[in-house]
Design a protein around this nucleic acid. Structure first.
Lengths: 193, 193
DNA sequence: GATTTGTGAGACGATTGTGTATCATAATGA
DNA sequence: TCATTATGATACACAATCGTCTCACAAATC
């Protein structure tokens, strides 16, 4: 079924529809999802056994896309602040995937915790934040968990600017990074970079 | 009906249950909400004509609570950064209300935009941010919309720390404000306050 | 071009949630 | 104490969704 052009197109359309609609309207019926995808409801059930199965697939695909987007970093060997900035730059265009993961986190954790790359990624993030602390780019007295939460929160804030204000991705990335590391306050001395 | 102790207790329990459950599980049925509230389903319908009506009431009550929490500020006459810090301090204990408003924003805007205090509050927030810019506490080149988004994002980040990490409200308030104004980076010279 | 295969449309029963109505009970207010 | 009134439990009709199935058709594969 996956070798047929029609099948991959249908599948993609359904996942795309779920990705866009479900976080915005979690009560959306599968009839609605199918309509948004421009696909018959019966076909939806041919691809996904249930609502739960659809959500699981969207979760997996979203995670996969993010992993893929981050692969360039493997070769770049960045650390600390530089790695965090690069990660934002690479992930921000996929903020809709991040939003889905956060919206369906209850299911997401169950589904993704089996994937070894999930645990790896979380560990890497912690290491990166702690590198930034060692490098003097993040104050040591701030709890790592708080820093990570803030990092995530700003990514969603940035995503909001992009979709609602039609802001430019690169501008927002810059805005995000300066806000994250320097805050909104004045910078009396530019000590970084 | 409102003069009876039982009625106010039921109403309060139902609103509390909706406030806690609906943002977490938007698919929750009214049967579930009633069970969580420890109230019969029939009684729920005596208080709220429909699911929509329940959500509207929770929205109104949430907004009301936030307005109430902020009333002390009327007499304090703070401006700019000081006003923003005070507002966070007063609102953070009501972060569950803020979360509900944000979760059901589509309904919320429809319901609350009729309330003149809503438009007033939004206007006040913009004025306060711009005061902070004039005072040199927020860099003028940052878009006001971005600053407000960041402010909201950090409040949710803080809320997360409080519920998931059982963090202390006052500690988190301090963390939030320093992160907001100074970022996570080092502070080479403390020019503020 | 012939065959295979995915699709759309529709029918179907089962399940679930919604909103209303009734009635006995228990708490409240006067 | 006594009348009022909110409640819980239950039954009910109604609508919507779910998940399955069938069939004719169109598109892809070979």
């Amino acid at each position: 079924m996956l070798r047929d052009k029609r099948a991959v197109k249908s599948r993609r359309a359904l996942i795309e529809a779920g990705l866009a609609e479900l976080p915005e309207n979690p009560m959306a019926s599968l009839t609605e999802i199918a309509e948004i995808a421009g696909i018959g409801r019966a076909t939806l059930y041919r691809h996904f056994a249930s609502r739960e199965a659809l959500i699981e697939e969207v979760l997996k695909v979203s995670f996969e896309d993010i992993i893929q987007a981050l692969t360039p970093m493997e070769k770049e060997g960045l650390r600390g602040k530089q790695a965090m900035m690069r990660a934002v730059e690479l992930m921000l265009p996929l903020a809709d995937r991040l939003r889905f993961l956060s919206s369906f986190w209850l299911d997401g954790e169950r589904v993704l915790s089996k994937d070894p790359r999930y645990a790896f990624m979380e560990k890497e993030t912690i290491i990166t934040v702690e590198q930034a602390k060692e490098d003097g780019d993040i104050r040591k007295e701030l709890p790592t968990r708080w820093v990570m939460n803030t990092y995530d929160a700003l990514i969603f804030s940035a995503w909001d600017m992009i979709v609602k204000e039609k802001a430019d991705i690169h501008e927002v990335t810059a805005l995000l990074m300066t806000t994250f590391f320097d805050g909104v306050g004045p910078k009396p001395s530019k000590t970084q970079e």
